[in-house]
Design a protein around this nucleic acid. Structure first.
Lengths: 222, 222
DNA sequence: CTATGTGAAGTGTTTCACAGCC
DNA sequence: GGCTGTGAAACACTTCACATAG
């Protein structure tokens, strides 16, 4: 997310480590599955085992945000799901824009996991006019020049970038100008943004490199 | 990636923090760009600034693997690129298999970033027989039942999973049985594997959740 | 003067272990 | 018996600051 800054030890959710937020997403995923499977409650130990971490870690993570457990019982799953969604901000539906409707962009538009977690694509953009006009997965495709207007009209706050690396920074600039507040970047380049815009980078080749390393150095790694 | 295990502080590459390996990929990416731009050398400070980290961090990271710098000069980019690729294991070409040729699978098959870093898809698999037989992006598509045979024949060591969550564990089991040594899992579920198989999980919805959190909790404002 | 490599210091994160509650 | 929440201890990671080298 944002560039490194000094940490003024603010009290609330501001000082929470990124790793904790990441695990929150994992807890949520598991809890949702547990609920689907019909279980009412679970424990820090059960959750931890599912994720390969300790029970203490689970409890400490949640403690950043309040008290959710019941001694002797554990956690009520549905209640905790609601709590975590509120923390992550996914108790609301987020309208999302995607820029770039090549292979990856199309795949992302069709990915069902986003809707399940409260994200909905409301607009796609491309610089290639031949791609403009025909909706993909029921999402309208606009020309990049219309970005600012559409972002405002649809109250879009989050954007995803699935364009070639060379074009990424220009797209970022346009998104920022249009007032987007957070960006997921799939292009394999570092992007520059103003302080007030959050970002997450996903580099698919990097994931394979991590894997390659642990295979070559296999000894532990699992 | 690795499930938590005891850390016997072994000397070599085994005791290197995951975060360092992650940054190694980032250094590589930047260095390759610097080389393309025609620069011969760079410094820990320049690299650090590009990545938003300190110069000391860059030097410490590299120090895990040897001495690559020249005092007063910095690092020779091409040399460092070669060194990092050797560390990550991407100085060789890895044949990769992908299971699941839905939206996401197809997009991954067409993603050019993999080839650039030394990964090559040599086989795709699906359970849907209507998808079998017609190559995608010049990669042959086999039925899942042929997995074991093809993996052995093509010496495949890495596999990517782009199937629905409910099918992921079954596919993992097959890949492991076939002798694959590392797995990238795009299905939003935890998977169980034996100790000797490495894995990396990528959950696209999680990335958006991280973003949503940081937008909602962005400094002050409101 | 520039820039690396590295012990030592500083910070941050995880685990331990136990009081308190069901 | 089971389980949470939490200070304190243990551990890991990052930054500092400086000796050393070109």
């Amino acid at each position: 997310m944002s560039r490194p800054k000094k940490k003024t030890a603010a009290p609330s959710a501001n000082s929470v480590p990124t790793a904790v937020i990441n695990r929150l997403s994992l807890y949520l995923r598991e809890l949702q599955r547990i609920v689907r499977d019909g279980k009412q409650t679970t424990s820090s130990q059960a959750l931890g085992t599912l994720l390969g971490i300790t029970d203490a870690q689970v409890r400490k993570d949640l403690a950043h945000f309040g008290q959710f457990g019941y001694p002797g019982i554990g956690y009520r799953c549905e209640e905790l799901v609601r709590a975590i969604r509120a923390i992550l901000g996914t108790d609301q539906v987020w309208p999302v824009a995607i820029v770039g409707v090549g292979n990856l962009g199309r795949a992302l538009l069709g990915y069902r996991g986003f809707v399940q977690q409260g994200f909905r694509f409301v607009a796609a953009f491309d610089i290639d006019r031949s791609k403009v006009g025909t909706p993909i997965e029921k999402v309208p495709v606009y020309h990049l020049d219309e970005l600012s207007e559409v972002v405002r009209r649809e109250s879009i706050r989050l954007g995803m970038i699935a364009v070639p690396a060379a074009a990424a920074q220009r797209v970022v600039n346009r998104l920022v100008e249009a007032g987007v507040q957070g960006i997921v970047n799939f292009a394999p380049v570092m992007i520059n943004l103003p302080e007030h815009v959050s970002h997450v980078g996903v580099d698919l080749a990097m994931e394979l490199e991590q894997l390659s390393f642990s295979v070559v150095n296999r000894r532990d790694s699992g």
